[in-house]
């Protein structure tokens, strides 16, 4: 027997360890569940961490009211299967209460409004730790995020005043009113998440798989046509084979053209996107102009 773990198994062990620390160190933790692949993987890991017991945390969904119907069905089915509590923080409610003001115009989105609803939801439910599926490879500012990320009583993150994290000793101590965001899959990359979903055969919303959908070309991606977006005078819906790489508010979640209709094909697509060589640039450029052309067709 070989006494070493594959990298996915090691990442899994690390994430499970972190979630158990959250359970042990906090009184009232929750999982932030968006319905996206990262929060689905997080929930899957929580199931593993506490098996054969149920997941000891509620799932919190910050609902912009502008959802893909597929995401909502997926969420409700999963909740039923896991037997855990769902808590919804509603952006519509925040708007109705006058806590936030809805954006207007063509590119109006409720994405930015989510923060207020989330902070309100944390306060209302007295959550002292909210676990999220953020990864350090996603963005430069996140490269410095801790596993246990301390927030002051205004919910703010001060990147210059984060607690050092050594070995696997996590410090979740806090004063009244303060809370933590915890990121158990910090060390995973997009590729790891996909490979894990494939390997573990984790159910994901069908939106991630290539499918035919009515879309418009806006802000460099294929935006799904729904009751929540206003079409510009020159925007003509087209039917395309697309899939979504991330899932969020339907008004800002753009898809990519793809024929990847199985998980294995998605992994292949993600892998080749990473392996784009400098020498292949001409192809990419050609691809981009090709897209430009289609865009022009759509507009004019």
């Amino acid at each position: 027997m070989k006494y070493s773990l594959t990298h996915l198994k090691e990442l899994e062990a690390e994430s499970i360890f972190v979630m158990r620390e959250v359970y042990a160190q906090f009184e009232n933790p929750a999982i932030l569940f968006s319905g996206g692949k990262d929060s689905i993987v997080l929930t899957h890991l929580a199931r593993k961490a506490f098996w054969p017991a149920k997941i000891p945390f509620p799932l919190v969904h910050i609902d912009t009211g502008h959802n893909f119907p597929e995401t909502m069905k997926f969420r409700d089915d999963l909740i039923k299967e896991l037997g855990v509590k769902l808590i919804v923080g509603s952006v519509q409610e925040s708007i109705d209460q006058g806590r936030v003001r809805e954006e207007s115009g063509k590119n109006a989105s409720r994405n930015a409004l989510q923060t207020t609803s989330l902070l309100d939801c944390i306060e209302k439910n007295n959550f002292d730790a909210c676990m999220g599926g953020a990864r350090r490879d996603e963005e430069k500012a996140r490269a410095k995020e801790r596993f246990f990320s301390h927030r002051d009583d205004f919910g703010q993150w001060d990147p210059k005043n984060q607690r050092p994290e050594l070995w696997n000793l996590f410090n979740g101590k806090k004063n009244m009113g303060e809370n933590f965001r915890v990121f158990p899959i910090s060390n995973w990359t997009e590729m790891d998440v996909w490979q894990y979903i494939l390997h573990e055969n984790i159910a994901i919303p069908s939106l991630y798989i290539a499918h035919e959908r009515e879309v418009i070309w806006r802000n460099n991606s294929w935006l799904p046509v729904s009751e929540h977006i206003q079409l510009g005078p020159n925007e003509v819906p087209e039917t395309k084979m697309i899939r979504f790489r991330t899932l969020g508010d339907i008004t800002i979640t753009g898809g990519v053209e793809s024929t990847a209709d199985t998980l294995a094909k998605i992994v292949e697509e993600v892998a080749s996107a990473r392996q784009t060589e400098r020498g292949n640039r001409a192809d990419d450029k050609r691809g981009e102009t090709a897209m430009e052309d289609r865009k022009k067709q759509g507009y004019f």
Binding site: H7, R136, D137, K140, A141, A143, K144, P159, K160, Q162, S186, N187, T189, M191, D192
Partner: peptide
């Protein structure tokens, strides 16, 4: 060089984690 401050000052101010993979290792 991640955060805006760092770009401006040309220094790195905290531990940053980076990821890459080859066919053999991550």
């Amino acid at each position: 060089d991640g955060l805006k401050d760092e770009r401006e000052q040309g220094i790195t101010i905290d531990v940053a984690y980076r990821y890459f993979a080859t066919p053999k290792r991550k």
